[in-house]
Each structure stands twice: as structure tokens, then as C-alpha cells.
């Protein structure tokens, strides 16, 4: 595979199965140096399997992957040295202290002891745990543990940091804080690959998002381009005859797409929805269909997901 210096992670035709279960099916994507890249998808979509293959915890069955310039199939040790990882579950020893946790990590990566100590201090300041140096892990809150794990993932100054569902189980305030830490880590030059099933998280953090469902990448792009692909606005309408209304609506200029059901019509507008809406109501009334309720909003990642997968993203 030719190497592109501006790409930190390149994945081509990656597949992974557990026996008969195909968890990841032929996915290809690449992450640019300095970017935050998200895999967005529901639980069981294959996100964790994919990330576990990329971080060498699962064998590479099919496909070609280059991580930080190293071939995942043949240079696994170099890959391990170049990446940082924050696992989905808390992966800490309850009975170790905060500084022991970070120093142990430095030790198993063969980091120099003095370097280990300076980095421990720097990173604990970064994640605001500097006053917890000697605290035992069991005394930390969930948010603190996550922050410590992020610090640990950064101990070896990785070129690429992997995070599997970084804010799962955290309260809204702690999630926001965690996002801030991740942004500042990224601002200092670390590329980030993360998986999430939170729309807002993907939207807030990512430079690039790939929506993954049933082991496949359905679509990808920047958060804005994904949302814009749905049009300017989304308009929800309830009428006296939704089926008849659908046909009429399609003839109105500016209407991009219409999906109707028994209860409501979802309409994607290609132009400014606030100007389109009066014309819609006028046209429908002219055809003796009464409009009973309307709602207009800007598309968010939820809508993007529903649009591309045909279903809502479940918890």
C-alpha cells in the first residue's frame, strides 16, 4: 500500500468475524493526521470489534491496515508503541494509586523512569488530577477514572489515540469536561480515533464521522456535510390525508425529499424552510387537505442516522 504522510490510519477492506457472525464487513477509511475521527453507530454495530482489531487485541483476519506508518499485520509491536488506548470498560487496578498506575504503564512500555515521572506530573495537570497523585483508584469517581485513563493513554506520547466509547456512563457535566480534555489533547497534535453511539459526541468532537451499522460504513463525511446532505431544514407535517399530500408536496420547488407515514410526513427542504413552509401550507390547503400540525428544525446527527439507516439509534 503506498504510504501517504498526511494519513495516520489507513484501513482497506477490513473484515472480522467470530465464527459465523460477521461483525465487521469490508470497511475502508482513512484518518488524516491531526484529525478527530469517529465511528458512530449503535451498540453491536461492530465498532468495538473494529477498534480491537486496530489496537492489536484481536488478530487481523482480512484487509490491510497501516497505523502510524506501520503495517498492522507484520509490524504489530511498532503499532503498539505508536498508539495510546482508552478502553471501553474501566481498565484500572482498584488497589493501585494514581501515580503507580501511570508509572506502571510507562514501565511496561519501557519508558525511562525520570521521563515517566515528569510525564505523570504533566498529564495529571492536563486532566486536573494533580491533587490525586497518591489516591487509590477505588477512591476516584467515574469521571476521574476516565480522565486518568486518558492520561494513561497519553503517557507514551502516541501519534494516535484510540478511545472506545470514551464517555459511556458519565454524567452530562463530566462528559462535557471529558470532551474539553480530548479537544486540548487533539490541539496539541495527537490524532484521535474514537467510537461512540452518542450523536452529540460525534457531532461535537469530530472532524470526520463514519456512520457504521451492521458492520458496514453506511456513509461518512464531516459533521456539517452529513447534516447538509439532508437539506437545509427538516419539516414535519401532519395533515388530514398524508398519502395524498405526499404527491402534491413533491411538486413544490425546493422540496428535496418526502417520507410519509400514517401519522406524519417528514420533508427535507433544499432551501430555507422558513420560507418554504407558508407555500406548503398554501398549496395543501388549495388541494383541500388541511394541515393540522407543523414543526421545523435544523437536521442533527440523529436525523442523519435515521435517514441513512432507516431506523433510530437505540441505546
Amino acid at each position: 500500500m503506498p504510504q501517504d504522510k498526511s494519513v495516520i490510519l489507513k484501513v482497506e477492506h477490513l473484515s472480522h468475524s467470530y465464527g459465523e457472525v460477521h461483525a465487521v464487513r469490508d470497511i475502508s477509511f482513512s484518518v488524516k493526521k491531526g484529525d478527530i475521527f469517529s465511528f458512530l453507530g449503535p451498540n453491536g454495530a461492530g465498532k468495538s470489534t473494529a477498534i480491537n482489531v486496530l489496537i492489536t487485541l484481536l488478530p487481523l483476519q482480512k484487509g490491510e491496515v497501516v497505523v502510524a506508518g506501520y503495517n498492522l499485520r507484520t509490524e504489530r509491536e511498532q503499532v503498539r508503541r505508536s498508539i495510546g488506548i482508552v478502553f471501553q470498560e474501566i481498565t484500572l487496578d482498584r488497589d493501585m494509586t494514581v501515580s503507580e498506575t501511570l508509572e506502571f504503564h510507562g514501565d511496561i512500555y519501557g519508558l525511562d523512569r525520570n521521563l515517566c515521572r515528569t510525564r505523570t506530573q504533566e498529564l495529571l495537570e492536563l486532566v486536573k488530577l494533580e491533587d490525586k497523585v497518591s489516591a487509590y483508584i477505588k477512591e476516584l469517581s467515574g469521571g476521574m477514572k476516565r480522565r486518568l485513563e486518558i492520561a494513561r493513554g497519553l503517557m507514551t506520547r502516541p501519534k494516535l489515540l484510540f478511545l472506545d466509547e470514551p464517555t459511556i456512563g458519565l454524567d452530562p457535566q463530566t462528559r462535557r469536561k471529558t470532551w474539553e480534555y480530548l479537544k486540548s489533547v487533539n490541539a496539541e497534535g495527537t490524532s484521535i480515533f474514537l467510537t461512540t453511539h452518542y450523536m452529540d459526541e460525534a457531532d461535537e468532537l469530530s472532524d470526520q464521522i463514519a456512520i457504521i451499522d451492521n458492520g458496514k460504513i453506511i456513509t461518512s463525511g464531516t459533521p456539517d456535510s452529513l447534516k447538509n446532505s439532508l437539506g437545509e431544514d427538516i419539516i414535519y407535517i401532519e395533515t388530514s390525508d398524508n398519502l395524498a399530500a405526499e404527491k402534491i408536496l413533491l411538486t413544490i420547488p425546493g422540496v428535496k425529499k418526502v417520507q410519509s407515514s400514517e401519522s406524519r410526513i417528514v420533508l427535507l427542504s433544499g432551501t430555507d424552510g422558513t420560507h418554504l413552509l407558508p407555500r406548503i401550507i398554501e398549496t395543501l390547503t388549495g388541494h383541500e387537505i388541511s394541515v393540522q400540525a407543523v414543526n421545523l428544525k435544523k437536521p442533527n446527527m440523529d436525523d442523519v442516522f435515521i435517514h441513512y439507516t432507516g431506523r433510530e439509534l437505540r441505546e
Binding site: R80, R81, I85, T91, L92, F104, Y109
Partner: peptide, 16 residues
Amino acid sequence: FDKNWGILREIMASPL
């Protein structure tokens, strides 16, 4: 315990 709830994952993903 390290395997099920602890740091074996961290160790296994390291170059050790």
C-alpha cells in the same frame, strides 16, 4: 481478575 475486570487488557495491548 486482571483478565475479567482489570488491567490485563492494558498489558496485552502493550509491547511487553
